[in-house]
Nucleic acid binder design. Structure first.
Length: 506
RNA sequence: GCCCCCGUCGUCUAGCGGCCCAGGACGCCGCCCUCUCAAGGCGGUAACGGCGGUUCAAAUCCGCUCGGGGGUACCA
């Protein structure tokens, strides 16, 4: 068996969303686990819905997840070009060959006429598919249509009877009656190829051995398999490839097998889409989800290894992944679980790793520079162990310790109203005095000082700590107070304690 | 309408005839720890859509039914 060739074939019409990422991941895992090739092909035949920005976003998303491709945009490869917009002549010549061989025919109905026919069929309780009215036009009829200014589409003839089988790696054996599959369009009136033609031709031409894609394409498979049979028969495709200067198929290539993946759905059980909130991989990146966690979680959206294991490194996934263990029921993209896994992973990071991963998020928030100052680096590293237990994603760290990254402090009104009252005035004064007299600026020394104040004033730790917390951090929620104060400049702490006394109400 | 797919705790799932009065994880609830918030520890809640078969025995096999989804496009 030659090494497998799989592909991810996105249409660049938006960001990489998590469903697409999951499909890409499964293909990538399969290829990497079997020394195969992972091909990235851009399906940009529909100029209307395609943009260069969208393509960049998709490539970036894949890079973020560390899903590298062996052939495709930016890396090239022996079976390119890998953008369908650069393969138009191939589709045209294949379409022509199909027409010449009698497998396809031109049909002249306008979209409006077809729409009307569909509606009529529906109302009469008949199947809405194309009935094949133009299957056997005479030359005279064709000329008459042309004279009306009509441009034909090309339709592929499907068998009128019998059945066909899709042997799916995750669904098993699925049977379809040809009677339910009407003649379908492979080339539009403007000469452009439809998905069925371009996608099928390329999977064959690029020697793809397994197609793993969304379940929504399962019912398209009989049509594509039929097309493949026709293209392979009588070397139709190989001749077209040769005639139009595109690379020949890899030696020994055959038609691919299929694996249809369960869809990712939203809370309403409908396929995941924008209206379900965050669906773009980049959204999750911005929120501070780690790529290795996203990969781990995405792998679990439809696949499982056993009853209990759910933490996997990318290498482990590569070693363990198989389509046999891909489930058949749609998976809900559960962000609570994702958050939990992300938090677990964050807790595994060393101080240095965490500080390094945190830096871009503080940079994006305008708190630290691209190249952080030594002071800021020291702060990030110092806060890392305090933050680690408190965040589920990296972006959450920013509001928690923003107070440390500048002289200005914004007080939370609610916290001020709750904690800077009554005995707080005494607490702040005593704390300022005690901390000002400290000769060791360490968490231990600060703890001792604060405890001493609580005792002297006859207050609980809580009553003694909270006013100080609000005074210095602006909020009544922060990392542990003594450790936090120890990271700040003593002068800054004292200044804030003094300033806060003016805020104390009754 | 017709065709196809799917149906186990709220969620993701394990289960491929007896090991299951169904296991794990997330969530949720309670308790412990505690300077806030977390993290952590301990405990708990909760599911085989329904009905008929087959079988000594069914979450597991079969039929029907109900529910969800996809397709039936000159979208992919």
């Amino acid at each position: 068996m030659p090494p497998p060739r799989v592909r991810f074939a996105p249409a660049p019409s938006g960001w990489l969303h998590v469903g697409g990422a999951r499909t890409a991941l499964y293909n990538w895992l399969y290829a990497r686990g079997r020394s195969g090739a992972f091909v990235l092909r851009v399906e940009d035949t529909d100029a209307e819905r395609t943009s260069e920005d969208a393509l960049d976003a998709i490539l970036q998303g894949l890079r973020f997840l560390n899903l590298d491709w062996d052939e495709g945009p930016q890396v090239g490869g022996p079976h390119g070009p890998y953008r369908q917009s650069e393969r138009r002549p191939l589709y045209a010549s294949v379409a022509e060959a199909l027409l010449a061989a009698g497998h396809a025919y031109d049909a002249y109905e306008t979209p409006e006429e077809l729409e009307a026919q569909r509606r009529a069929a529906q109302e009469a309780g008949l199947p809405p598919g194309y009935q094949g009215a133009h299957r056997q036009l005479t030359d005279a009829q064709r000329e008459a249509f042309m004279a009306e200014g009509r441009k034909p589409v090309l339709r592929l003839r499907t068998p009128d009877e019998g059945a066909t089988v899709v042997d799916d790696a995750v669904r098993g054996r699925v049977e379809f009656d040809w009677a339910d599959v009407s003649d379908f369009v492979i080339q539009r009136a403007d000469g452009s190829p439809t998905y069925f033609l371009a996608n099928t031709v390329d999977d064959l031409a690029m020697g793809i051995s397994l197609v793993a894609r969304g379940d929504d394409l399962l019912s398209a498979t009989p049509r594509q398999q039929l097309l493949m049979d026709l293209l392979l028969r009588d070397d139709l495709l190989d001749n077209a490839l040769a005639a139009s200067r595109y690379p020949a198929r890899p030696p020994g290539a055959a038609a691919p097998t299929y694996a249809h993946l369960p869809l990712l759905v939203g809370p309403d059980r409908k396929p995941l889409s924008k209206r379900h909130g965050s669906v773009a991989v980049d959204e999750y990146r911005r929120q501070g989800f780690l790529p290795e966690v996203l990969v781990n979680f995405l792998a679990l959206c439809g696949w499982s290894y056993d009853a209990t294991t759910e933490r996997f490194t990318a290498d482990e996934l590569v070693a363990k992944f198989s389509f046999q263990r891909v489930g058949r029921n749609p998976a809900y993209f559960d962000t609570d679980k994702l958050r939990s896994m992300n938090g677990d992973r964050i807790r595994e990071l060393s101080d240095e790793e965490l500080a390094e991963r945190l830096q871009p998020y503080f940079n994006e928030a305008g708190l630290v520079a691209d190249l952080p100052s030594p002071d800021h680096q020291r702060l990030l590293l110092g806060f890392a162990p305090l933050l680690r237990e408190r965040i589920q994603n990296l972006a959450e760290a920013v509001p928690l310790v923003a107070f440390a990254f500048g002289d200005d402090l914004v007080h939370d009104d609610r916290a001020v109203g709750k904690h800077l009252v009554g005995t707080a005035r005494d607490v702040l004064a005593a704390t300022e005095a005690a901390l000002g007299g400290l000769d060791q600026w360490t968490a231990e020394a600060i703890t001792a000082a604060l405890d001493g104040i609580a005792e002297a004033l006859g207050l609980s730790r809580r009553r003694a700590f909270q006013p100080v917390r609000v005074a210095v951090t602006g909020s009544d929620v922060s990392p542990p107070l003594p450790e936090t104060l120890a990271l700040l400049e003593p002068d800054l702490v004292l200044t804030r304690l003094r300033a806060a006394r003016a805020l104390v109400g009754n």
